[in-house]
Simulated assay, not measured.
Amino acid sequence: MSVANLSALLLTTEQRTLLGGIMVNWVVEQQLERALHFANQKQREDFEKEISNVPHANWTPSMHLPWLILELEMNITIREIQIEVARHMMQPMMNENNPSMSNIVMQLNMGEGKTSVILPMLAVSVCSSPSSLVRIVVLKSLFPMNYQSLRYKLGGLLNRRVLPFACRRDMNFTDVQINKIFNRLQQGLSNHDVVLTSPEDILSFDLLTIDKCRQNQFDVGRAMLSIQRWMKMFGRDILDESDEILHVKYQLIYSIGRQQQVDGASECRSRFPEFHLLNHQPFPELCQRIANAWLNQKNDRQLDQQLILSFILDANSSINIVIDRFPYSIIQLFRIMRGLLSSEVLFVALNKRYRVNFSVNQNSKFNRLMAVPFRAKDVAADNTEFGHPDVAIVLTQLSY
């Protein structure tokens, strides 16, 4: 489009005010139509909820035109609580310990419009800044639904592109491909686009950067590291379902090197078929009995047995009490027992319910014999494993 044609599209202040007033009237008209529909369908609760929501009560449409367009395209009236949450998250209080950081977490009840309304509001407002590229982080299982929803809400009159960002270990990036990704992100910043990704994809990209450097592919590694640094400078993350995304269980592990036998493999046996602890109260007694039964199979002296018991049952005891009395291979077994008992790895395993929290995935497409996390009864969580190796081993033994 030529400059002359572009200048012809510019509106005067009076024209913008008139157009804004027409859009506000359209939004009110849509609300009245929804209220009449609920009344005709005798949906009294929805009718009362609709008419009690006063449009634009705590915000000025002329100050937030993207929100007004969202209302019009989505056929909704943004509620006051949604405006308050969006404003609060757009201008978070600065962290007193680190003034350069500004983060905030908000909680709303289910059905209050966090994903369907507030998330697009935040995205379209924050991405309007020339120094912020919005990166929306959602759960992997909700990625397709969020992608379609955001494209529908942001891709119309608002004309915002949603850029999906995916990364897996089997993606063998070259430096040319990484530079294209970098250029597309920079273009997204200038075009006020929105990036949609998941925590697994972010972690995978971080680990793949390290893996490329380990394989001496330094050009690719440097290019990927440049993207990470650039995103830390210009990226503004919006997390949906932050309690799940920020949970400690969200980790990603890339195994490297050759397979090796775990320490104490010959001693790894489980004798707790379908055994489940409801609480922590009996666990210390169970640890004492396990330790005594294990030591009774050994031929250690009485004094040595007391030192061993003190070491494996007391997490605060020093390794110095056994380090000069036993060979290294035996000390490794003591440390494994200490992890299982005093560090409560065994309690974590026995506290889980078989076939509800863990089991072996029987799906023929999942070619693994290790126990994996379950989301519900006989429903394995896709593409997940237990990150702690000792927990994975114990739960695998319990599964068989």
Rank of each mutant, 00 (worst) to 15 (best):
Met1Ala: 10
Met1Phe: 05
Ala8Leu: 10
Leu11Glu: 14
Thr13Lys: 12
Thr17Pro: 02
Thr17Glu: 13
Thr17Cys: 03
Ile22Cys: 12
Asn25Tyr: 11
Leu32Pro: 02
Glu33Thr: 12
Phe38Pro: 03
Asn40Tyr: 14
Gln41Trp: 01
Lys42Gly: 07
Gln43Tyr: 08
Arg44Asn: 15
Glu45Val: 06
Glu45Arg: 15
Asp46Ala: 13
Asp46Tyr: 00
Glu48Lys: 11
Lys49Trp: 07
Glu50Tyr: 08
Ser52Tyr: 14
Pro55Gly: 04
Trp59Leu: 12
Ser62Glu: 12
Ser62Gly: 06
Leu70Met: 13
Leu72Glu: 12
Ile76Pro: 03
Ile78Gln: 02
Met90Phe: 11
Met94Gly: 14
Glu96Lys: 11
Asn98Ala: 13
Ile104Cys: 14
Met106Cys: 15
Gln107Trp: 04
Leu108Tyr: 08
Asn109Glu: 14
Glu112His: 14
Thr115His: 08
Val117Asn: 05
Cys127His: 00
Ser128Asp: 08
Ser128Ala: 15
Ser131Glu: 07
Val134Ala: 07
Arg135Asp: 01
Val137Ala: 00
Leu139Ala: 13
Leu142Cys: 04
Gly156Thr: 09
Leu157His: 11
Leu158Cys: 09
Leu158Glu: 10
Asn159Ala: 12
Asn159Trp: 04
Arg160His: 10
Arg161Thr: 14
Leu163Gly: 04
Ala166Ser: 07
Asn172Val: 06
Thr174Met: 03
Asp175Arg: 10
Ile178Phe: 00
Arg184Glu: 09
Arg184Ile: 07
Arg184Ser: 10
Leu185Tyr: 07
Asp193Lys: 02
Val194Phe: 02
Val194Pro: 09
Ser198Lys: 05
Ser198Glu: 03
Ile202Arg: 01
Ser204Tyr: 02
Leu208Gln: 05
Ile210Tyr: 10
Ile210His: 09
Asp211Ile: 03
Lys212Asn: 14
Gln217Val: 10
Val220Met: 10
Arg222Asn: 14
Met231His: 00
Met233Lys: 13
Glu241Gly: 05
Glu244Phe: 04
Leu246Asp: 11
His247Met: 08
Lys249Ser: 15
Ser255Leu: 09
Gln259Ala: 06
Gln261Leu: 12
Gln261Cys: 11
Asp263Lys: 09
Asp263Glu: 04
Asp263Pro: 10
Gly264Val: 04
Glu267Val: 06
Glu267Cys: 05
Pro273Glu: 04
Phe275Gly: 07
Phe275Thr: 14
Leu277Glu: 08
Asn279Trp: 03
Gln288Pro: 02
Ile290Thr: 11
Ile290His: 12
Asn292Glu: 12
Asn292Tyr: 11
Leu303Val: 15
Ile308Met: 00
Leu309Tyr: 07
Leu309Thr: 00
Leu313Tyr: 05
Asp314Lys: 00
Ala315Lys: 09
Arg325Ser: 09
Tyr328Leu: 14
Ser329Gln: 12
Ile331Arg: 10
Arg335Gln: 13
Gly339Lys: 07
Gly339Ala: 03
Phe347Ile: 02
Lys352His: 13
Val360Ala: 02
Asn361Ser: 10
Pro373Gly: 06
Asp378Ala: 04
Val379Asn: 15
Ala380Asp: 01
Thr384Leu: 10
Val391Phe: 00
Val391Lys: 05
Val394Asp: 07
Thr396Met: 03
Gln397Glu: 11
